[in-house]
Design a protein around this nucleic acid. Structure first.
Lengths: 193, 193
DNA sequence: AGGTTGATGTCAGTGCCTGACATCAACCAC
DNA sequence: GTGGTTGATGTCAGGCACTGACATCAACCT
């Protein structure tokens, strides 16, 4: 006989997103989320540090993938080549979850506290990638700038990837954004009007 | 006869930073800040949206300066030239406040909720600059990338500017970081070991 | 059989933040 | 000047996020 239903963490994740979508983040109380899956508010806080973290605690997987990709690039590669390779190899982690990403992103975009948490996660990602570059022997500030470039391209591309009507793969959008970025950093004149 | 001491907002700002420095952000209650300048907790929340905002509500000045600088650049300038000009013209807003910036930054760096708010402010700055580029006729995603570049250089340079032992001006550090960024985006090989 | 583990429940409490209403000096209109 | 208005502040009640301390009890181990 099971004393508790298994997978409490996952059930809380699913229920939270659903309630945030249906009735809004602010209007949803933690007790409500917990009760909807047969748990108490106190137990929610044993699974997640706070009310926001329930939407973000899977991000370390993506972070590990980026760090591993940067570490795995062939020695002697230019930082920008490493960035391109890391973007290409991590895109698959999200490719199959576009509908879920859209749903989640809509909730985050509508609530300032959630935006703040997302930005913190991106900053953490940037810091981890910068450290991976330093491990490759790239000195600061180049390591920091390479990491910022990587996350900027990822974030801009991700925003386009989940836009209405966008059908290209994340990897493709990332490639195009990175190309445009390179061009921007070398162009001396704007396109004539 | 004055019913209230004037400058309540400023007094709260000063008292808050002082208390955050002396006894830590978490250990300081809003009631404590307010009481230390002869006001009540309720009044604090009439001047600032929340406990964090008291450290950040001056940032719109910087944002306006960046937007104005982008708008004021000569027509036909390459986006990167505009970025360089905006960085140069806004640096003066901080040049004279390095000790204060160091003090404030130490508090922010030590507390996750404050880091989150700072990142949100930087994201807001990025969005405003991107909009200013669009007003110049720069299309997306170039406008977004130019804005990200501007804020990235500013943030990296600012971090170096307040580092221990750093004596160069903010404008100088920004120029150097931007130059390194350009080089990174065009270099094909890492420097030989 | 008995002890341990670990996820959960219960309860009390703190601090952030808000809405509603009261106060009262300064200011303005006539 | 009398009287009404304004606006910054105080007071009070309350909701919700989050935490520490302690209890519970099936599963598991010895």
């Amino acid at each position: 006989m099971v004393r508790w239903e298994p997978g409490a963490t996952d059930r809380l994740r699913v229920a939270a997103l659903e309630l945030y979508v249906q009735q809004g983040y602010e209007q949803t109380t933690v007790g409500e989320i917990a009760k909807s899956v047969g748990l108490t508010e106190r137990t929610f806080f044993r699974h997640f540090a706070d009310k926001r973290e329930v939407l973000f605690d899977g991000e370390d997987l993506l972070q590990h993938a980026f760090v591993a990709a940067v570490a795995a690039a062939p020695p002697g590669s230019a930082p920008l080549e490493v960035v391109a390779a890391a973007l290409a190899s991590t895109a698959q982690h999200l490719e199959e979850r576009r509908p879920w990403s859209r749903k989640r992103n809509q909730v985050i975009a509508a609530n300032q506290p959630l935006k703040e948490r997302e930005l913190l996660k991106l900053a953490s990602l940037t810091a981890a990638i910068a450290e991976a570059f330093r491990q490759r022997g790239v000195p600061d500030p180049a390591a920091a700038l390479a990491a910022e470039t990587c996350v900027t391209v990822f974030a801009v591309a991700f925003g386009q990837w989940i836009a209405d009507g966008e059908t290209r793969s994340l990897a493709t959008v990332e490639r195009d954004i990175l190309a445009e970025f390179k061009q921007l950093m070398t162009a001396l004149e704007t396109a004539e009007p």
